[in-house]
Nucleic acid binder design. Sequence first.
DNA 1: TAATTTCTGTTGTTTTTACAACAAAAGAGG
DNA 2: CCTCTTTTGTTGTAAAAACAACAGAAATTA
Lengths: 217, 217
Amino acid sequence: MKKIFEVLKNVSIFDNIPPDSLGDALDLLKARKALYKKGSPVFLEGSPADFVGLVLSGKIHIIKEDYYGNRNIVAEVCQGELFGEVFACAGIAAIPVSVLAADDSEVLLMDFKSMFMQPADKTCDTLLSNLLKIVANKTLQLNQKIDILSKRTTREKILAYLSMQIKACGSPEFIIPFNRQELADFLCVERSAMSAELGRMKRYGLIDFKKNKFRML
Amino acid sequence: MKKIFEVLKNVSIFDNIPPDSLGDALDLLKARKALYKKGSPVFLEGSPADFVGLVLSGKIHIIKEDYYGNRNIVAEVCQGELFGEVFACAGIAAIPVSVLAADDSEVLLMDFKSMFMQPADKTCDTLLSNLLKIVANKTLQLNQKIDILSKRTTREKILAYLSMQIKACGSPEFIIPFNRQELADFLCVERSAMSAELGRMKRYGLIDFKKNKFRML
DNA sequence: TAATTTCTGTTGTTTTTACAACAAAAGAGG
DNA sequence: CCTCTTTTGTTGTAAAAACAACAGAAATTA
């Protein structure tokens, strides 16, 4: 349990909650730990939207599949990050995505319904306002993804994604968290076409890359 | 002022705020009314993200332009709907989109910063939790847009959009709120190509339409 | 109502992508 | 080290989209 607290200290939903109130907050949220093997489902599309997950270790992918089976990685959730909170907060019945463990992962499951039923409670108040900030930021992330997807050509999508990465890590050289297939899924383009386009961009002197290490020129 | 209250009654950010507290809430938010002519800017990209708008009448478009000038209508905001709240709640400095009046519009401008500085206030509490639900739902909307944009072909994008409309209005026959150019911008495809595709889909018996009235077959 | 402007549909050409099939490279396990 | 598997890059072909240019329809205004 001590290890959990170590992770929670750095999780923004618990910002401004004093360490000695953390246990209360977890009780309030009926928190419990669960383990998932790489590739196994955390939630399947259609599950009730009551529960929210916090990644204690490992990596979680939020996946949407269309009727042709094109996978779309909506988001990658890493240690200390939340998932499912949007569905819980929006008050919908079933989640419209699947959640899979991308690595062996430990997840803290929490019940958010309880949070909305305790007005004027200080801890609840803080959780609520932290949550608002988190959800708002997630919305901005989705906006970024829309920025990428609204580009017409594969090259523009790649450039939009890479520019985004540069901004995020502050350097023109960086390591992307996807392999080629995952990147293609994220950008919603064909892997082989993307690979070809990456090759052209390298020859053309726009970018350089080796495996997952990219550099803008 | 009475007319404003009439609109606010049905606005979900003021849900569960008793009518006699509404004035207090508006004071708290430093609300003031502003008028915008069709086509004129409400906020330009780069403006500070302190203010939030509520459409009292008319119609507002949230616009993002890429460096080639392809317009992308991120959202259409109608009477009784909020805009800019995500940027204010996320705590960023400048807004990354432009906001234009799509019609002559009345807007209620509010300062959200004040809301985060009044903990344990009942009205604030309610506003906060309403806001959370709103932002979460907006996130879901963006997810829907991503669902559309992640489709590879124009036809699939059109079908995804139309299916979405059917779900939203509960009938296979409906009127879309865009003209052809706006729809193309929303779907991030070429207008003429989309028009051609619509024609093919009609001839093929997939859909029927006349002007803005569509019907799925 | 006529003139003008805006919107929509059509068509041909060029560019880009999807698709498929395969080759090369990199990794994993024995 | 070799074999097997996975990942990545390459190429040719067919399909789709972007683009451009224009014609007809609809809406607006004088």
